[in-house]
């Protein structure tokens, strides 16, 4: 069992496929999170500002529809729809990897928007009031006072989302992207020798996630400098 895995991994250059898959998984996860944070922050800002501004409220409804759409369907269905229906229809010349990045970005944006909204609402209303009474505008108060504190509150949940996203990338293989899972599947001799590759695959994900956890902790500790906890 381990012998055939060794043969596939080393002798038949399987490690190259695995490294390629590892790289793709990382690219999708990190790009997806960055896009998700940007998209989610924008949607959340409009949703929070929509309480007092009519234009923002209109945009917030669009955001609501977007969140409902992407939270209401499984990620794998989204990948099918985008990869086989929407992108061919648009005649896009994007590589499969880029397509996947965009789908995962859109998907995580929907979740992050809710996380961000919760973060902004969790900041004490007194902070906003204090900013406004000093004569700062609503926007300035938001960007200088509320959002920096909201981001600090949101980091643990955001880390959670990042980890979930990283693991979700394992379905990218269905759009024929060489991700980590797909790479290990090519080493199973067509499904006859599954045990060793899949165990190693699981360990790979574990190590990756453990690494991310440490990074998230460090970021959080850096941001919590201003608190006594």
């Amino acid at each position: 069992m381990w012998k055939s895995f060794y043969r596939n991994f080393i002798t038949n250059d399987g490690y190259k496929t695995v490294l390629q898959g590892f790289q793709n998984t990382l690219i999708i996860a990190i790009f997806g999170l960055c896009m998700g944070i940007l998209l989610g922050a924008v949607v959340a800002c409009f949703q929070v500002a929509g309480k007092r501004n009519k234009v923002a409220r209109g945009i917030a409804y669009v955001g609501d529809a977007y969140v409902a759409l992407f939270r209401g369907t499984p990620i794998i269905v989204q990948i099918f729809v985008f990869h086989f229906v929407i992108f061919p229809m648009l005649g896009s010349a994007l590589s499969g990897l880029m397509e996947c990045c965009i789908v995962f970005g859109l998907n995580s944006g929907a979740y992050v928007s809710e996380i961000m909204r919760g973060g902004i609402l969790s900041v004490d209303i007194g902070q906003t009031e204090a900013g406004r009474t000093l004569g700062l505008s609503y926007t300035t108060t938001m960007f200088r006072i509320v959002i920096p504190q909201a981001i600090k509150n949101v980091i643990p949940t955001l880390g959670n989302e990042f980890i979930t996203l990283t693991k979700d990338t394992s379905v990218a293989g269905y759009a024929s992207i060489m991700d980590l899972t797909f790479a290990f599947r090519t080493l199973t001799d067509g499904g006859t020798n599954v045990m060793a590759p899949y165990i190693v695959l699981a360990v790979c994900y574990l190590i990756l996630i453990a690494f991310f956890t440490v990074i998230i902790r460090l970021v959080e500790r850096r941001l919590r400098k201003s608190e006594r906890r």
Binding site: A130, L134, I145, Q149, S226
Partner: peptide
């Protein structure tokens, strides 16, 4: 209103100092 509020200081019961700044 922002121009006017600059000339009216306000102090709250709960202090409301900005926690993210020194």
């Amino acid at each position: 209103i922002n121009l006017q509020r600059r000339r009216m200081g306000m102090v709250f019961q709960q202090f409301n100092l900005f926690n993210n700044m020194n």
